[in-house]
Write a protein that binds this DNA or RNA. Structure first.
Length: 420
RNA sequence: GUGGGCGUAGCUCAGCUCGGUUAGAGCGCCAGGUUGUGGCCCUGGAGGUCGGGGGUUCGAAUCCCAUAGCCCACCCCA
């Protein structure tokens, strides 16, 4: 244990890596159907990209960001989330606010937190942002796309919860009423919520303490304070979700941890995880582009937590044992000449997209057969002196344990003529 | 930042309560059993500063202390 990856940072290796590949492939397949294009932004940004956007009093900015000065003295930060960098890139490259831009991204994010199940200091998000459309129908379509993505991966127990946080016009009225309510009932609140009351009262909605939970359910609801626009838009979102057959649960307690969200907010949760049960979250953030120095452009986005997603996929699949289907070929050679011949033939097969293994050290045939079996080869080609003389080899089918003699010049044809 | 749990082979763990000869098992890995044939089986082998450090003791994986780490939960979030 002399060297260890940093706390909260993990190596992603086989066999898990294949699930990651699957998830990535699925994203590249589905998101472009909705006209999203991939964007890759730097992992490191000027610190202000995040402090200005996420909100000074959020946990992320207050104590979770990896921040340091580079050698030139500039304050930089490892990105703790994906939206702000995408917005920064949007402002940098797109001058026309009438243009609709749709981006998706995936990559590592960093937050200095205490690790626990489903939460790490380096984690990966798959997200998307749409800039330039204010219609709530888009909100619904974005959410629907996430749902489609999950279904495509075979995820069954993801639940969508949705809410409206109101806008800068109506939210302050609610906040005042809610604060008054908390203040009146201060003696019933847990110590954490007493603290939250002053700083960020909305957070009390999120409290899992049974007493606070029951209390805030009795209190004023954001939905009684929504202005006409917000209420109409929220109805449209729900209506459109119905149209698209996406099941949802309205939950007035969905409060997001970043300050820039307005109106529609949503989370997908799963009971297959531990206490970190959110697998995706997002919402509308119409004011952010302006706030970051760009034009006044409406926007919607979301992010999916990939570690958690992979966890769920593993949990849901664990019931069925994986089936090993053999593929590829292993050259079992006897003698230096045969090995040389195999090295050359191996390249031909690899060029034809066939996985090929061989032994370089002149091990016993038994040993080579074991290697072939372990790599999961469908065929083994045995080449020895007698075969070399006749320019042929024994082709062994590892599933049926049958062997045929084939010409060394016709390996490719022979392999390709066998139905997979 | 707060609380609880855990550290012995690549992996999963036994041994620790009641300190005592070369620290074990299963799986995995390598080799042999058939000097030209895999899986099953049999035999053998490699692999461990018992997290690192300090202390008690004739003697510490085992008892004590303090450290770094891992896990889980709170906080918060993906």
């Amino acid at each position: 244990m002399s060297q260890h990856a940093l706390r909260g940072m993990n190596d992603i290796r086989p066999p898990d890596i294949s699930i990651w590949h699957e998830v990535e492939k699925c994203a590249h397949e589905i998101f472009p159907r909705y006209l999203y294009q991939e964007i890759r932004t730097p992992i490191l940004e000027d610190m202000s990209v995040f402090t200005r956007s996420i909100g000074d009093t959020t946990n992320i900015v207050e104590k979770e960001m990896y921040v340091f000065q580079d050698r030139g003295g500039k304050w930089v930060a490892l990105r703790p989330e994906g939206t702000a960098p995408v917005v920064r890139a949007y402002i940098e490259h797109h001058g026309n606010p009438d243009e609709v831009v749709r981006y998706y991204y995936m990559g590592a994010m960093y937050r200095y937190e205490r690790p626990q199940q489903g939460r790490f200091r380096e984690f990966h998000q798959l997200g998307a942002e749409v800039l330039g459309i204010s219609s709530p129908k888009l909100d619904a379509e974005v959410i629907h796309m996430v749902d489609v993505f999950f279904k495509h991966l075979g995820i069954k127990n993801a639940v969508l919860e949705i809410n409206s946080l109101g806008c800068p016009i109506c939210r302050p009225k609610f906040l005042r009423a809610f604060f008054d309510f908390l203040h009146k009932n201060e003696d019933k609140l847990c110590s954490d919520c007493k603290r939250r009351m002053e700083k960020n009262p909305l957070r009390a909605l999120d409290c899992k303490n049974p007493g606070c939970d029951a209390l805030t359910r009795e209190g004023p609801s954001i939905h009684d304070f929504l202005c006409e626009d917000c209420e109409k838009d929220f109805d449209t979102v729900l209506e459109t979700l119905g149209l698209l057959k996406t099941e949802y649960k309205v939950n007035p307690k969905i409060v997001r941890g970043l300050d820039y969200y307005i109106k529609t907010t949503f989370e997908f949760t799963s009971n297959a995880l531990g206490s970190q049960n959110a697998i995706a979250g997002g919402g509308r953030y119409d004011g952010l582009v302006r706030l970051m120095g760009g034009p006044n452009v409406p926007a919607v986005g979301f992010a999916i937590g990939l570690e958690r997603l992979v966890d769920i996929i593993k949990a849901e699949r664990n019931l069925t044992a994986p089936v090993l289907n053999r593929k590829g070929l292993f050259f079992a050679t006897l003698g230096e000449k045969a090995l040389q011949k195999a090295l050359v033939l191996a390249q031909q097969l690899r060029n034809a997209n066939i996985p090929v293994g061989l032994d370089y050290e002149g091990k016993s045939l038994k040993s080579q057969m074991r290697k072939a079996d372990k790599m999961g080869a469908e065929f083994v080609m045995v080449i020895g002196d007698s075969e070399l003389e006749k320019n042929e080899a024994q082709l062994r089918n590892m599933s049926s344990s049958t062997e045929t003699t084939i010409s060394l010049d016709q390996i490719l044809q022979a392999l390709q003529s066998i139905p997979a």
